[in-house]
Design a protein around this nucleic acid. Structure first.
Lengths: 199, 199
DNA sequence: ATCGGAACACTACGGCTGTAGTGGGCGGTC
DNA sequence: GACCGCCCACTACAGCCGTAGTGTTCCGAT
C-alpha cells in the first residue's frame, strides 16, 4: 500500500492510494471507504475529493497517466543513432521496470484498461498517452529501416504488453523474465522487422 | 447476452450467462441476481447453483476453460509437416476468431485472469490449460528448428495475447486487425525464431 | 478584526450484494 | 401407492456501497 506520506496534495494521495488498492484488490476492492482507510485519512475524505465513483476512477486514471508519462518520457527514449541495440535496450529496460519497480502501477493499468472499455471518459487518457508513445516509437523503427512501420509498432507494443500482462496477471509464470531474455527476444523482433538476420 | 437456450444443463446456462455478463459489465457487474435476470431465470436460481461468490467464479472459470479447450484443441493445431506457413496460418486463425466470434469469451478471460491473481483456486484452471497449449506449441516450434524453443513459445504467446488484449480492451484500436496483417507479423516472428530470412 | 469561502470531518440513507434458511413440487424406489 | 430425496423458487437479513447533506474549522482578503 504505502502511498506518499508527504509533499503531495490530498488529491494525489487519494489517487495513489486508489491505484495501490486497484493493484491489490481489483476494481471491486476500490471503494471510497477503502481508500480512506488505506490512506489513513478520516472517513469521508475520499468522498470529498471525488464525490462519485466515476470521479474517483477518473482521478486514478489521470494520476496513472501522469506517473507513466514520466517513465516513458522522451528522456528515456533511446537516441536514434544507437540503432537497433539501443532501442532493444531501452524497451527491455522499460519492460523490466514495469514488472519490478512499477509492478503495482502496471497491474492497476490493466484493471483500469478493462474498465475503460465500459467508460468512454476513461478511454481518452489511454488513447492520447498511447498514441504519443507509439508515434515516438514509429520514428525510431522507421529510422532503423522498418519495412512497415505502422504494423511493426503495433507488433512491438503488443509483444511487450502481452509479456507484461502475462507476468503480472500470471498467464504463464509469476517470475519476471531476466532482462537478457527480454533483450534477446526484442532484438530478434527488431531484426525481423528490419530484414537483418540475427548475427 | 443471449446465452444458450436449450440443450445445456442449468449450471452451464448460469456459467455462460456469467461469462457474458463478465464481458459486458466486468467483475463488478457479476452478481447472483444479475445472472438470474440476464438468463431469464427466477430469482435465486444462480444462488442455488453457486451459493457463494467464489463458487460462481469457479463455475465461470471452469466453463471458460471447457469452451476454450475446444477452440484450442489438438484438431485445430496444424500438422507439423505444414511447416512455418501452417503454424502461422493456424495461430492467425485462432487469434482472429478470439477477436471476432469469441470476443466475449476473450474479454471474460482477461477479467477472470486479473481476478485469479487474488484467488489461487482460480489460477489452477488457467495454469493447466495454458501449460498444455504451450507444450503443443513447443513441439511445433522445435520441429521448425527454433534455436530456443522455451523462450520462443513465451514470446509467441505473449505477442498473441498482447494483440488480443489491446484489441479487446482497447489500448490501440477497437477494430480487429485483418487476418493478413496478423499472418504477416506471425510469419516474421517465426522466421526470426528459426533463423530464416523473410523473402 | 471581520468576513467569505474553501476544504474538511462526519452523519444519514436508500439500494444492492452475498449468503442462509425454508417450504414445495417432482421424479425415482420399494 | 407411499416414501424419500433432490432440485428449485422464494424470502430474509445483515453488511457494505455510493452519494447527498450539514456543520465546522481554517486561511486569506479586505
Amino acid at each position: 500500500m504505502a502511498a506518499r506520506t508527504t509533499g503531495t496534495s490530498r488529491a494525489d494521495l487519494v489517487a495513489d492510494t486508489a491505484l495501490a488498492l486497484l493493484a491489490e484488490r481489483g476494481l471491486r476492492g476500490l471503494t471510497h471507504r477503502a481508500v480512506d482507510e488505506a490512506a489513513g485519512l478520516p472517513q469521508g475524505s475520499t468522498s470529498n475529493v471525488a464525490r462519485t465513483r466515476q470521479a474517483l476512477l477518473e482521478l486514478a486514471v489521470r494520476r496513472l497517466a501522469d506517473r507513466e508519462a514520466r517513465v516513458l518520457s522522451p528522456e528515456e527514449m533511446p537516441d536514434p543513432r544507437d540503432g537497433l541495440e539501443g532501442l532493444a535496450d531501452a524497451l527491455a529496460l522499460a519492460t523490466h521496470r514495469a514488472l519490478t519497480r512499477n509492478r503495482d502501477l502496471t497491474r492497476a493499468r490493466y484493471e483500469l484498461a478493462l474498465e475503460a472499455t465500459r467508460r468512454p471518459e476513461l478511454r481518452a487518457y489511454y488513447d492520447t498517452a498511447g498514441a504519443r508513445f507509439r508515434d515516438r516509437l514509429t520514428a525510431l523503427v522507421t529510422a532503423l529501416g522498418s519495412t512497415d512501420p505502422a504494423r511493426h509498432v503495433l507488433s512491438l507494443v503488443a509483444w511487450a504488453e502481452g509479456l507484461m500482462f502475462a507476468c503480472v496477471a500470471g498467464s504463464f509464470h509469476a517470475e519476471v523474465p531476466s532482462p537478457e531474455q527480454v533483450r534477446a527476444s526484442l532484438r530478434e523482433l527488431l531484426e525481423a522487422m528490419t530484414g537483418r538476420t540475427g548475427r
